[in-house]
């Protein structure tokens, strides 16, 4: 299998971007549902919320596992530097994800109040912490991290928690909460749905405020993340798509077109990731204050042979994955009905 003159490094940069975007769109809503979970008070409402994501959260998390695997495979230097450099952040993310997974599975297995409350808190805390950490990681990649000449991280865990990365953490949390609220509206009915509808509006406002602050901070303090757009003004169309998609969400909710609202939210996420990717390219990890040590799609990549083999695997596998992912969402379409197999 030879792909001739195809720029495999760029192809894999895009594919990994697609995997992480898929992760944000899919696991984003179930992290968001988790963040909102404790605001639903009755046990039945909480079960409806859990079962809204019940059949799909596991598959959604696989996007992260595959994204991590693809990063390891295509850009081992980045995987090694980021995972060892952000050691405590990743350990906390793992702890949060484990708690979430286990909480979903175990919460409704026993009727005791304390039991359910304990797992509900674990589920919500795990979801909030995961969202924050993902945002903080993104913030650090955008801001740049100190690397030495061998590409090893030279900072500390505390140095990763600066105002800009925290700002992106909160923005990500708000984005996922909005996304989750819209998804929950799609999957519920009656009084719970009416309540969730009002939450969508609140989360949209929260997200837009965070987004505006982050954008300002980026333009003022992280100018390299807007440099490409300054040089190529037509790229502003991506930002425009992003803003129109966000603006369409309250409108669609108002007109009871929840499906359209959810798609708009997905488009907004894709556009955000697109902007992030466009500005970062060809870097994968930006080194600050020594930009020469940055990890790029060229100095951090696997051999062209491996990238080619992986592309073949992806070309065979991805269409199949997409086909059955869609058919599973189709089988479980419609409103949540609790039965004895439910969580």
């Amino acid at each position: 299998m030879s792909y001739g003159s195809l720029d495999l490094n760029t192809v894999w940069y895009i594919l990994i971007g697609v995997l992480f975007t898929g992760y944000a769109m899919l696991d984003g809503f179930d992290l968001g549902v988790g963040a909102l979970h404790l605001f639903t008070k009755s046990d039945e409402d909480r079960r409806v919320m859990l079962n809204a994501i019940g059949p799909v959260w596991d598959g959604n998390e696989v996007w992260l596992v595959t994204g991590g695997g693809a990063l390891f495979a295509a850009f081992p230097e980045v995987y090694a530097t980021v995972f060892s450099g952000f050691y405590m952040a990743f350990v906390l993310l793992l702890v949060a994800l484990i708690f979430r997974a286990v909480a979903i599975e175990f919460r409704s297995k026993q009727p005791m109040r304390w039991w359910r409350q304990m797992w509900d808190v674990g589920f919500a805390a795990g979801s909030v912490l995961s969202s924050l950490l993902i945002g903080i990681a993104m913030g650090n990649i955008a801001w740049g991290i100190p690397l030495d000449e061998r590409g090893e991280f030279t900072g500390t865990f505390a140095s990763l928690l600066h105002p800009y990365s925290l700002c992106l953490g909160v923005t990500t949390l708000a984005l996922f909460a909005m996304h989750g609220a819209i998804y929950a509206v799609l999957k519920t009915e009656g009084a719970l749905q009416a309540r969730l509808r009002s939450w969508v509006n609140r989360t949209i406002i929260a997200f837009i405020v965070c987004y505006a602050i982050t954008t300002m901070a980026t333009l003022l303090y992280v100018p390299h993340m807007a440099a490409r757009m300054r040089a190529h003004p037509w790229l502003f169309s991506v930002a425009l798509v992003n803003m129109l998609a966000i603006a369409n969400i309250p409108r669609a909710i108002q007109h009871r077109r929840e499906g359209q609202a959810f798609l708009s939210s997905c488009v907004a996420m894709a556009a955000l990731m697109g902007l992030f990717g466009l500005e970062l390219y060809p870097n994968l990890v930006l080194s600050q204050p020594e930009p020469a040590h940055s990890l790029t799609i060229h100095n951090a990549a696997s051999s062209p042979k491996t990238l080619g083999i992986m592309l073949t695997i992806a070309i065979i596998g991805v269409p199949v994955v997409i086909a059955y992912t869609i058919s599973i969402y189709w089988i479980f379409r419609g409103k949540v009905k609790l039965d004895r197999m439910s969580y």
């Binding site: 595959t66 390891f72 495979a73 090694a80 696997s302 992806a314 994955v321 479980f332």
Partner: peptide
Amino acid sequence: FSRYVGDVFGSALAAEGIFAFFLESGFLAV
């Protein structure tokens, strides 16, 4: 170790993610 084996493990891990994990978790719902 990851830097050392990344190129070799790459294809195996990509295959595992795409062929195994998605298959398992997707159909588990059904």
